[in-house]
Amino acid sequence: MAVKKYPHFHYDNCVSCGICVQACPVGAIDLTRRGKSGKYKNNFPEIVNDRCIGCSMCATSCPMDCINMTADYEG
């Protein structure tokens, strides 16, 4: 049985560079999550729709190693 995995974002080291957003082939990630990077108000990546195909392109591309793929459910 195939296990579908989703990106899990670790925001502590995220620099909001958007590389994961553009790497996503289906437009499932966008920089829409408001948060703080130190004292700065920033946008962070998050899953914004149900189009994620679990391809892990985002995790592979992240230069800060802020994304890991986790098995949220079995597909």
């Binding site: 620099v15 909001s16 560079c17 958007g18 590389i19 553009q22 920089l31 408001r34 990077s37 700065y40 108000k41 920033n42 946008n43």
Partner: peptide, 14 residues
């Protein structure tokens, strides 16, 4: 009055 930082693609600076 800055609502949020804006980063270009691949930029950690913003």
């Amino acid at each position: 009055i800055e609502e949020v930082k804006y980063h270009c693609y691949s930029c950690p600076l913003g």
